[in-house]
Design a protein around this nucleic acid. Structure first.
Length: 190
DNA sequence: CAGTGGATGCTCT
DNA sequence: GAGCATCCACTGT
């Protein structure tokens, strides 16, 4: 077993951390797999929850790096972010999809779905499969139930516009593993 | 396939 | 009261 990622991994520009997360294995209570799709949200970003300053919801984004920021989306789903850079900066990476490899039975039960391809293909689906909820908001990523394992090979990464936002939608801050079958959506053709 | 609309709750204006 | 960093079911080709 490889060493887990240390918090210094996250104490860099969110635009470096986001692509570096592709291929990193995320486990929550032992369920998960390699991350295949993420989006970066930085402090200058009108689409970021933190753009208009600190509020009760986004407080964790303003805290130290290496922690989980979990929020409710459309009243129904949870979305998981990893806080980057430094305390007070408010930058984070949204996890949008991973390849389910660990704890498949539990993920299928939580999703009430057999199709591995759709188990964690989307930020809400990923959280449902891994059992991530608001209870995880603010937790450190180097402690249970989280495990983050460095990638073992250099993946081929493609950048594309982010999904589901209206402001700053043109910024190409979505990063995906090229050719992955486990993405939330395909990558637009050039 | 593409497009549409409903569910549902919380945050911020 | 509006607007979501979403997902699913349904319609029509």
């Amino acid at each position: 077993m490889t060493d887990a990622l240390s918090w210094t991994f996250f104490a860099r520009s969110v635009h470096e951390v986001a692509p570096d997360l592709i291929g990193v294995t995320l486990l929550v209570d032992g369920a998960g797999g390699p991350i295949v799709e993420v989006e970066a949200y930085d402090p200058t970003d009108p689409a970021s929850h933190a753009f208009r300053g600190r509020t009760p919801r986004n407080a964790v984004m303003f805290g130290p790096p290496g922690h989980a920021y979990v929020y409710r989306s459309y009243g129904i789903h949870w979305c998981l972010n990893l806080v980057c850079e430094e305390e007070g900066t408010a930058a984070a990476v949204l996890l949008r999809a991973l390849e389910p490899t660990h704890g498949l039975d539990r993920m299928r039960d939580r999703r009430r779905l057999a199709d591995v391809r759709l188990l964690a293909a989307g930020p809400g689906r990923l959280c449902e499969a891994l059992g991530v909820t608001g209870e995880h908001d603010g937790l450190a990523l180097d402690l249970p139930p989280f495990v983050l394992l460095p990638r073992t090979a250099e993946p081929e990464i493609v950048a594309a516009p982010r999904i589901g936002i209206t402001r700053a939608a043109e910024r190409p801050w979505r990063y995906v593993l090229n050719g992955s079958r486990y993405l939330s959506r395909g990558v637009p053709r050039a």
